[in-house]
Write a protein that binds this DNA or RNA. Sequence first.
DNA 1: TTGCACGATTTGTCAGAGAAATAGCGGGGC
DNA 2: GCCCCGCTATTTCTCTGACAAATCGTGCAA
Lengths: 246, 246
Amino acid sequence: MRQRKEQTGPRTTGLNTTSMKRIHGSIAHDLGVDIVTGIYKPGDTLPGEIEFSEQLDVSRTAYREAVRILSAKGLVESRPRTGTRVTEKERWNLLDPDVLAWMFEGEPSVEFIRGLFELRMIIEPSAAELAAVRRSGADLARMGHALEEMARHGLATEAGREADQLFHHAILEASRNAPLMTLSSTISAAVSWTTIFKQRKRKLPRDPVADHRVLYEAIGNSDPVAARAAMVDLVRLAQEDTELSL
Amino acid sequence: MRQRKEQTGPRTTGLNTTSMKRIHGSIAHDLGVDIVTGIYKPGDTLPGEIEFSEQLDVSRTAYREAVRILSAKGLVESRPRTGTRVTEKERWNLLDPDVLAWMFEGEPSVEFIRGLFELRMIIEPSAAELAAVRRSGADLARMGHALEEMARHGLATEAGREADQLFHHAILEASRNAPLMTLSSTISAAVSWTTIFKQRKRKLPRDPVADHRVLYEAIGNSDPVAARAAMVDLVRLAQEDTELSL
DNA sequence: TTGCACGATTTGTCAGAGAAATAGCGGGGC
DNA sequence: GCCCCGCTATTTCTCTGACAAATCGTGCAA
């Protein structure tokens, strides 16, 4: 016995930062998805510990640890007597990798997608600029390798998408700015979303690998102005492409 | 009995996002601070559940829930047999409000402070630009009110600092971008840090309230270019001011 | 040398019992 | 009638003790 009744099954999504192998992890995942997709709305009270644990046939301990996780990400707040309630959206840690991933398990709203691209358009050009100034040879090598992978597999493949994320990640790393680097997963999510859309909805008007190469060379030449411009191009293209698909 | 032996006492810090009233909260807080300040280094193993709970005279339950919180913020990772280890810095959610607050309970490194200001210089001017285009009358009213408060109390006071944070928060809100808004607490931390420094180390060469007013009016006039410029001025000033104090 | 089984250790899960906090209700005083 | 205060019921919080599951390392065997 002691098995979860409602195992909703892994939805077809990419990477998991939280293990999710343990029960408390999968409960946190499921509840998290239900919250960010709006099944539970801000102000709603989650099932009480006894109620929930009996319904799903798990221990109160497991449920409580799951709630701790959600609480740490700002999604819920627990208090005696009133129970555990979903907090208002403004307090959610939307940039938390898990929360972001949970958002993408549903159908994120158009505004949210737009917001993410807007953020990307703010962050990445500056990151590219910094990277052009601060990059080391090792950074450059990583970018070059990712570029090769992209060229080899094409952006429509899983491997190509992975390489794309690696490329952008390498740029963030080269910016030598720790707070900026933590946004890498956020950027990745946006990148992934874009390329998925690209894959299934449109043919690209230009060769995206070539565009990446321009950026790569600008950073290689330690030319921050060109790097910023190239990144702006890159993001704008992705943005327009996505916009057409919304 | 059942009382924590080592209650390190509330360090003199500002706001708590996590309640910390409960035992698991204070354990998470203490451990979190110890991790981000480097007492536990990446790769280190945290005390085992039995060991820790006996030493501090708390239950395994409480300790485990604390570890769940830290794990949700990317600070640690638990596995059977090997124990709970501190993860490498790259995986920490530095933009998590709690993690950020914990960083500031110690003496953050110069690079980190610089990185934070760099991020602020990237984010806030764009946010101001967006706010100038999208702000509502209510947003403007909030900013105006915060401005008045700043003028009344001066930036050297606690009330003044609070008003400053409110002002910047209102701008983020007016940008109408959810992911951007979640960076508000990050910005706040940087703002708070700056003004604290200002207060105890230097006299300002210019009237900061007047500078804020320029920004406020640019946004009021729906002038994104002027708003960006004003915000750049504001952040640069804070940055230079802080730089001198490092 | 390589592969595999096993034992030891640590986290993971469960069950049950109180303790603590608190929202809401009701009674007493004015 | 209105306000303040204490009581009660409910929910989370904490503790305890037990067993399950995972996995690293060891040592044996092929």
